[in-house]
């Protein structure tokens, strides 16, 4: 029974099983996951700022950065635990250390970050063991830069096309977003006269975030489409407008409290839009089988 029916279908035609997704879209909930991405990133970059402020002798800014790092890490961790299907088993994250699992590496990083920033804030608030608090602040600078970037690996290390293919740019997008977020948080909680480095961080972070996001969307081609369309597209465009606007305002935010507030809020909102937008783009790219099938097809014979 010779059956060659498949050869009647043109090569370019894309087929699927009733249009159903091939992949399972990420099941992580909103706001838990994107809120954690924001808070964890903010905490990490704030720790790096606290460490730099310690070395440079910016005491008031250092206190604000220590506090932001502690708050972001703690609230972020609560979101992560709430996200688990079995929250009571969150300590199972500490059963093993697996370098092949970015979530395992991240859990240990978050645990270290939480511990160090708690010590740093506890010491600053109570005045107890100042040297230990200072050492914890310096050490949290190291866990901090890991906190701000490991989440990019967390997302890229999946089969989700819009995340996996973005493995080069996502770390810079997230690092920029984290720096902008921390700059905004510290700028909002430090007297203007002492907040200069925070404003500089907000500007540098905002520029990095916008540039990395733009490069990512351009390089990805077809797989980058979910970042430009639908709800994810709206979030990413809002993020760009808010981040650029907030970053521009940050350059002049030293002049008034109102400008500082406007800039800090715009940058924070922009960073949140980035995190929600990236999650949504990942979901959209997993749900449409064309993003799975077309990149995997061998190139047509010349």
């Amino acid at each position: 029974m010779p059956r060659r029916r498949h050869e009647m279908v043109p090569d370019a035609e894309f087929r699927s099983y009733y249009g159903q997704p091939i992949l399972k879209p990420p099941i992580w909930h909103e706001p838990h996951m994107p809120a954690y991405l924001y808070l964890g990133g903010m905490s990490g970059a704030a720790s790096a700022m606290a460490a730099a402020a310690r070395l440079a002798g910016h005491e008031r800014l250092e206190l604000a950065a220590r506090t932001a790092a502690f708050a972001g890490g703690t609230v972020g961790a609560a979101f992560l635990v709430a996200e688990l299907g079995r929250p009571m088993r969150f300590l199972n994250m500490m059963r093993v250390f697996k370098p092949t699992s970015p979530m395992s590496v991240g859990s240990w990083t978050l645990a270290a970050q939480g511990g160090l920033t708690s010590v740093a804030v506890g010491s600053a608030v109570t005045g107890v063991l100042p040297r230990v608090g200072d050492a914890a602040t310096l050490a949290s600078g190291l866990t901090g830069v890991a906190m701000a970037t490991y989440t990019a690996v967390l997302l890229a290390d999946t089969a989700v096309p819009a995340w996996h293919e973005a493995l080069r740019e996502l770390p810079f997008l997230f690092a920029g977003s984290a720096l902008a977020s921390a700059g905004a948080a510290v700028m909002l909680t430090t007297p203007r006269a002492q907040a200069g480095p925070a404003r500089a961080a907000a500007v540098a972070g905002a520029v990095t975030e916008v540039v990395a996001g733009g490069l990512m969307e351009r390089r990805l081609g077809l797989v980058g489409e979910p970042y430009r369309t639908g709800r994810a597209g709206r979030l990413m465009r809002a993020s760009r407008a808010l981040t650029l606007g907030g970053g521009l305002l940050a350059t002049v935010a030293g002049r008034s409290r109102t400008l500082t507030a406007l800039s800090g809020i715009a940058i924070t909102a922009g960073a949140l839009c980035t995190r929600f937008g990236v999650l949504e783009a990942g979901r959209a790219s997993a749900k449409d089988p064309k993003y799975t099938v077309l990149p995997q097809r061998p190139p047509p014979p010349a």
Partner: peptide, 19 residues
């Protein structure tokens, strides 16, 4: 992925230092 993230982490540290 870890290499790119490591690069971004170093860039972040350098950026903070510059600020």
């Amino acid at each position: 992925m870890w290499r790119w993230a490591g690069g971004a982490a170093l860039a972040l540290a350098a950026g903070v230092a510059v600020c």
